[in-house]
Amino acid sequence: MQILKNLFLLPGLLFLVSCEKVIDVNVKNSQPTVVIVGEVSNATGPYQVRVTQTVQLKDNIPNPGLAATVYVTEQGGATDTFRALGNGLYESNSLQGKIGHTYVLNVLVDGQEYQASSTIPSPVPFDSLSFIGEVFFKDSSFYPQVNCQDPPGVANYYRFVEYINGKQVKANFVRDDRFWDGKYGEIVLRNFGDDDLAKGDQVKVDMQCLDKAAFNYFNTLDNAGGSSNSAAPANPITNISGGALGYFSAHTSQVRTATR
């Protein structure tokens, strides 16, 4: 329904004379909150977990790392205690993600425990990466297109991480198959930001199949993007218990590259 949302803005663009200005807003201060970002995949390790805390709006980012104890347990298997690389970054030692297995993340910060579990689902084959040119009003743009056959009869959740010339694109691409279950997917990674593709650009896409809880996080992440236009700006739905922000995603990973 993203298409609906965007096209709905159309009349606004056509006849409103809108103007923008930077203003001073009275913003409330808040207590720092722990932020945990962790991923495990079926690609070869090591895997990383980052533990940080939020800062006030006026403060600088990146937000500071936190000292923590981090370990991941494969359900019915071994526990890997991550080693600290400094600045809130922790890395696995021997852990190797496997399809169909469930992983439990435990993070201890200042005696407070945070926990999340996530399962690597079956992968959907990433057939190819191509490009598509689109004209919207006067601007023509090229976007990467992921081609894959969605398996019928099961709910599938996808996340795409795009890199242009080695640099990660900031847009958050997630899809579920609610409206196209079993169809052939031609998923256009439309990015209305300034990451326009030029001839010769090298594009890499990491296609990840996720479980529902991890998908819910990314699907609601844009609510925290800073626009007051969405109905209720809110923190994304996390799969971590204990009051932390962030996510723990165990997912498949398939990478394709192409040059426009």
Partner: peptide, 9 residues
Amino acid sequence: TFPTGKYEV
């Protein structure tokens, strides 16, 4: 609802 803090993901 205005934001009260920020962080990186």
